[in-house]
C-alpha cells in the first residue's frame, strides 16, 4: 500500500483512465444521437414531400401571403384570449383554493361544505369543458336572472368553473402533503385554525404542488381557445373567419403557432422549476 497524503488531491492513474473512458463514451453517444436525428429528419422530410398531395396541402395550410393577410385579425383575437386567461387565472386561484380548503375541513359541522366541494369537483372534472361552455354560455343567460353579459364573460366563467375543480384537487394534495406536525406546532403557538392554514399550511402546500399547478396553467392557456364556440372572436374564431373567406387553412396554423409561442415560456419555466426541485431533493445521487 502506498502512503497517502490527505492534502494531495491529484487524480490517481486509475481515475485518469476512468475519466478518459467516460469522455470517449460521451463523444460516441453524442455522435450517434446526432447522426440518427439527422437521418430521421431527412427520411421524414422526403416521405412528406413526396406524398401525392403535398403541393396542395402546402398551398392551403402554409401559404405565407394568407398568413400575413390574416395576421391582424388573429393577433387581435389572441389579445382576447390573453385577457380571458388573465381573469380566469385569478378566478381559478381563488375558487380552487376555496374548494381545496373546504374539502380539508374536519369535523361533522363541516360535512355539508365538504360534501358540496366534493360533489363540485366530481362534477366539473367529469364534464367536458365544451359542454360546460355551452351550458354556461347559452343556458345561464337564458335564465334572464343576470344582467346581459358578453359571451366572453360567460366563457371566462365556464373556464373558471372547470379549471378550479382540477386546481382544487392539486391544492388538496398539497395541503395533505404538509405534515400534520406543522399544524400541531402552529396551533401550539396559539395560532387559530385560519391563521395556521394561511401562514403555515398553504404556503408550504403551494410550494409542493407548483409544478402541477404550472402544468394546469399551460393546459388552460390553450383551452382558452375553446371559448370561440360561444361566438367570441378570439384567435381561433378569427382564424375560422379568415379561413372561410380565403378557403385556406393557413390562419389556423398561424393561430396554433401563436398559442404555442404563448405557452412556451410557461412550459420552459415549469421544466426548469421541476428540474431544480428534483436536483434539490437528490443531491449527489446519480440514479
Amino acid at each position: 500500500m502506498p502512503t497517502r497524503d490527505p492534502d494531495d488531491a491529484a487524480p490517481s492513474a486509475v481515475e485518469l483512465d476512468r475519466r478518459a473512458y467516460r469522455r470517449r463514451q460521451t463523444t460516441r453517444s453524442v455522435l450517434v444521437s446526432l447522426v440518427s436525428t439527422i437521418v430521421f429528419a431527412v427520411v421524414i422530410w422526403f416521405a412528406v414531400v413526396n406524398t401525392p398531395g403535398f403541393d396542395r396541402v402546402r398551398q392551403s395550410f402554409f401559404d405565407l401571403d394568407v398568413a400575413i393577410a390574416s395576421w391582424p385579425r388573429v393577433i387581435e383575437g389572441l389579445w382576447v384570449n390573453i385577457q380571458v386567461l388573465a381573469v380566469a387565472v385569478v378566478g381559478v386561484a381563488l375558487l380552487g383554493t376555496l374548494l381545496a380548503v373546504m374539502r380539508t375541513l374536519r369535523g361533522p359541522v363541516f360535512f355539508p361544505l365538504r360534501a358540496l366541494a366534493a360533489g363540485y369537483t366530481d362534477l366539473f372534472r367529469g364534464l367536458p369543458l365544451i359542454i360546460v361552455l355551452f351550458l354556461v354560455g347559452f343556458g345561464v343567460p337564458g335564465l334572464e336572472l343576470f344582467p346581459r353579459n358578453s359571451a366572453q364573460f360567460w366563457g371566462t366563467i365556464a373556464l373558471i368553473l372547470t379549471y378550479s375543480a382540477y386546481v382544487s384537487e392539486v391544492f388538496r394534495a398539497g395541503i395533505e402533503a404538509v405534515h400534520p406536525s406543522q399544524r400541531l406546532a402552529a396551533r401550539s403557538l396559539g395560532l387559530s385554525h385560519g391563521q395556521t392554514l394561511r401562514i403555515v399550511v398553504l404556503p408550504q402546500a403551494v410550494r409542493k404542488v407548483t409544478p402541477a399547478l404550472m402544468n394546469d396553467f399551460v393546459a388552460m392557456q390553450k383551452d382558452v381557445g375553446l371559448i370561440s364556440v360561444l361566438g367570441v372572436v378570439d384567435a381561433v374564431r378569427a382564424a375560422q373567419i379568415e379561413t372561410a373567406q380565403n378557403f385556406n387553412f393557413t390562419p389556423y396554423v398561424l393561430a396554433g403557432l401563436l398559442f404555442v409561442l404563448l405557452a412556451l415560456p410557461m412550459i420552459r419555466l415549469t421544466d426548469w422549476y421541476t428540474a431544480r426541485l428534483r436536483e434539490r431533493e437528490q443531491i449527489g445521487s446519480i440514479v
Binding site: S181, L184, A185, S188, V200, Q204
Partner: peptide
C-alpha cells in the same frame, strides 16, 4: 410553550 421531538420548525 411546546417543543416537539421533531423540532417542527416552519421550513418556509
Amino acid at each position: 410553550g411546546v417543543v416537539f421531538q421533531q423540532f417542527n420548525l416552519f421550513p418556509h
